[in-house]
Design a protein around this nucleic acid. Structure first.
Lengths: 246, 246
DNA sequence: CGACGGATTGAAAGGACTCAATATGTGTGG
DNA sequence: CCACACATATTGAGTCCTTTCAATCCGTCG
């Protein structure tokens, strides 16, 4: 079922070279990483780690999208992270996974066996420094999301998610018109619901409402056009003063 | 208004010596920290930093409790962190505060001017390593909290908060009876509401309901007795299998 | 004592959920 | 090429939980 194992590419040619945990590494360090890394591909829907399971590797998402979720015994689930290319999976110093990580699309991971990776972290500063930076960014994102989960209405939650996805996409592409955005939803309605602490029915209703009110346009279920980012950010309850905060 | 500035104590005698960002430092490093640190005291209710303001120091909470909050323009606020002794405030590499930090009780901070602290981080590994460890722990806590905010009922939210406070307290004290816990709430009903994404009225109602159902006992508004931690954790929706997970 | 902030309690309203039916789209096999 | 199954998504109706608005209580401090 799996796509064939990807050939190891040279770290220098890696698409996430300057954003991932290895971003700050010099040539010598890259050589070490090169020697302990291996690629692995996961199909859409496939689990990458399961909460509580032993985990003997850490790694970076090279391409594709994965989700980090937590589950209660009765099945209620909350997404606690959305992993995009360059994001890091696993925690040095811990040997069991704390969350469920599931590939949402086909995902290519650049994996490192945990032991050698930890040894490298202890010896050279660049990986640890970059990982600290990335972890602090993730903490900020998590706290931003706590405001969304705790205090926003369903409509604001949807607008917040769309605004984040739109901005993320914008950072990858050029846009003549800075107010207009076009992108594809990488998530099903259910995944959106799990992200936002809603039911999928409520997600569907609020997406429809935003469409009816002209805040977004839809082609099919997944292709979204935002005619006016300022308007969307108002709907999200964010101050849109900055306008173009990237 | 302020309590008199605290005398600098020797780092070796500091109550948070082995839990704070300096936990891993050796004697030489402590000497450097000693030379750039200064203590500062904040009264209950006093702001420590305000979101968006310039911040020229970072530091550790030595004693007392502070809250990290985010606010929307219309006044809705969400607590995104509860700072206890040894917790770190500020982010190296950023010069404006991202959150409101407010002292809930009298707070003593051990502050470092940001510039020299960053220089030290760049030169010696121990501070950065410990900060990474602490940040990863905070990220885990934030993600745990996302599940609470997104998926738990009001009653479960209250039980979750009480259970966390009880366990935190337990880690500081000895208890003959591992099932029984006694502690003081460090938060007002409003602060609890901001933590949990509820209104203060709902908090009040659910606390009363838990009391009526015998899950907790109250003396005054703040003094809480948990006769059976297992029962409380069931109410929180956590699996209480472990029983004594600290 | 009276004023104040924090907390409790009540009644009514509203927003999100639940349950259920229907639609849309995709892939498989006849 | 169509029929069918299946997953995903939309829509509706009714319910329930939390919020909102309001009144009251409690303890502390001038």
């Amino acid at each position: 079922m799996n796509a064939p194992t990807i050939q190891n590419v040279n770290c220098g040619d890696c698409p996430i070279r300057h954003r991932a945990v290895c971003a700050r590494c010099d040539a010598d360090e890259l050589e070490v990483l090169d020697s302990i890394k291996y690629y692995r591909t996961y199909d859409a829907g496939q689990p990458i780690t399961w909460s509580g399971d032993r985990m003997d590797f850490v790694g970076s998402v090279v391409s594709g999208i994965a989700t980090l979720t937590q589950t209660m015994e009765d099945g209620r689930t909350q997404m606690v992270g959305l992993l995009l290319p360059s994001d890091f999976v696993g925690r040095p110093g811990r040997d069991t996974a704390a969350y469920n990580v599931v590939a949402t699309s086909t995902v290519v991971m650049c994996c490192f066996r945990k032991k050698p990776f930890e040894e490298m972290m202890a010896k050279t500063p660049h990986v640890a420094h970059r990982l600290l930076e990335m972890t602090l960014d993730e903490l900020d994102a998590a706290r931003e999301w706590m405001l969304v989960l705790g205090r926003k209405t369903a409509r604001e939650k949807i607008a917040s998610l769309l605004s984040i996805l739109a901005r993320r996409d914008a950072s990858l592409q050029l846009h003549k018109d800075s107010n207009r955005r076009v992108f594809d939803l990488p998530l099903t309605r259910e995944a959106m619901a799990d992200y936002l602490g809603l039911t999928l029915e409520t997600v569907s209703r609020q997406v429809s409402a935003l469409r009816k009110d002209g805040v977004i346009e839809l082609e099919g279920k997944r292709h979204v056009t935002v005619p006016d980012m300022g308007r969307l950010m108002e709907e999200a309850g964010d101050d849109s003063d900055g306008g173009c905060l990237i």
